[in-house]
Nucleic acid binder design. Structure first.
Lengths: 254, 254
DNA sequence: CATCTATTCCGTACGGCGTACCAAAAAGTT
DNA sequence: AACTTTTTGGTACGCCGTACGGAATAGATG
């Protein structure tokens, strides 16, 4: 008694040869699923996930609200399609020679992707469907780690480590941007405006380290015109750690 | 012309000595802000952030919906209070002796916290207010890295690296759990139920590495009763990388 | 050609959300 | 006792995702 296959798979892999594509009965669709997904991505890039409503998307496409549901079963499924298409649209550069460079490239691609589509980070608590975009990406990531001495599980964990780290870095950046957007103040201005209040309110408690380090970090980050600098430290440490692990494995094998 | 201080700060630091606390006019509040925040945390622990609505919380507390707004200005502010209180309620263990153990402890505390309050990961796109819980936590994290040879900015980045990594690990775990919950199938069952469909739908494309690695990872993870195993690999590499960086700095200084 | 059937389109509507507004109730101040 | 301040909670507004059903339109069939 096999369970029914996931209906969303057909939609995710709609460009494959698996689709019949014969001339079908009934009124024709004015648009394609790709049109819908692309428009949704455009809106989400601009206004975030919360700014993407089915009604808005529909009118943006010149459709009535409910007509969207002939293209896509629901909002969650639309989001899944958006994720996979965003992944799929990016062209994946050839892997360079050195392993550290390949790791850095995996991270950099992820970084640029998340800068371009910040809403990818807002998608949590959603199912992780396997589509062509995600599959191509995963295959590409693994191709950079194949044959270097890692076993299969370690390859998977390495990919997860690299892209997970990048995700957390970008998320931190976004939070800062969000703060500045909703408060209308830069980080420096906010601290200046709230310094007195914090003195009052923190009465009794003292944060010697947090105060010192926070101030230093605040100055450094605000001066940084290149936000990618935040990533350098962590990525360098991670790659170091991974390389020395791999070299250790190779030495043990010999 | 100084900007007005952030009104939420008073609420976040409500337990400090900064509050006047004299007997005030008017009808008395039946509950305290802590009661409200604790009830909200309880609901979010059980049903996630999307299951926490102002109406539900109010009736849970025996209040009318709008009465909540005398305790808290709005839902976003409530979430900020929940975050800070969740951080503040956890007691922070003493730092052990070795630096690697201290790093591991920082990560482990974060890990346990996110397991206990999964909704902490759902909070993104929200402002990052500075409250006593977050401040205590940050101070504690830094105390584990003080005097080891890192400068202030590196200390901040190290904390970010450790807790960011943990966040991404737990998020991956949650996504798997979410998949199993909404599909009603375990990972293994899902793949079994969709194997044929995937063959059809992937027609033409091949994923040699993704297929091999994915299968290996799938087997390993599903067999893993201890989900913390996922964290070990990455954390070990990160700590290695950090330690060798610090040792390199010390050697250069000598 | 006309008829049937499958499909898309879209207006209406339902329940849920956060929360603005306001009148009634309750407490302290005078 | 009168006044002032605050909490309470009912009603309502504008969003949201989407269930439903009728009208429009296409190919398939006679």
């Amino acid at each position: 008694m096999p369970t029914q296959p996931d209906p969303v798979l057909r939609l995710l892999w709609r460009h494959g040869a698996g689709e019949p594509q014969g001339p079908r009965r009934g009124r024709k669709q004015r648009l394609s699923v790709d049109d819908v997904v692309d428009a949704a991505i455009r809106i989400a890039d601009r206004d975030g996930l919360s700014g993407l409503s089915m009604r808005l998307l529909a009118t943006d496409l010149g459709l009535g609200a409910m007509s969207l549901y002939t293209y896509v079963p629901g909002r969650d499924e639309l989001l899944a399609l958006m994720v996979d298409r965003a992944l799929g649209r990016r062209e994946l550069p050839a892997m360079p020679d050195g392993l550290p460079d390949r790791m850095a490239l995996i991270a950099r691609v992820q970084y640029e992707e998340l800068q371009e589509h910040p809403w990818l980070l807002e998608i949590s608590g959603l199912r992780a469907w396997v589509g062509p975009g995600a599959s191509d990406r995963y295959e590409w990531q693994l191709s950079g780690l194949e044959g270097v001495g890692l076993d299969d599980i370690e390859m998977d964990q390495t990919v997860a480590l690299l892209s997970g780290f990048v995700g957390s870095v970008v998320q931190a950046q976004q939070r800062i941007r969000q703060d500045e957007r909703t408060s209308g103040l830069t980080q420096a201005e906010w601290w200046a405006a709230n310094a007195d209040e914090l003195d009052v309110v923190m009465a009794g408690r003292s944060y010697p380290l947090a105060g010192r380090v926070g101030a230093a970090a605040g100055e450094a980050y605000q001066a940084a015109t290149d936000p990618a600098r935040e990533m350098e430290f962590g990525l360098a440490r991670i790659i170091d750690g991974l390389m020395s692990y791999i070299e250790g494995k190779q030495a043990a094998q010999r």
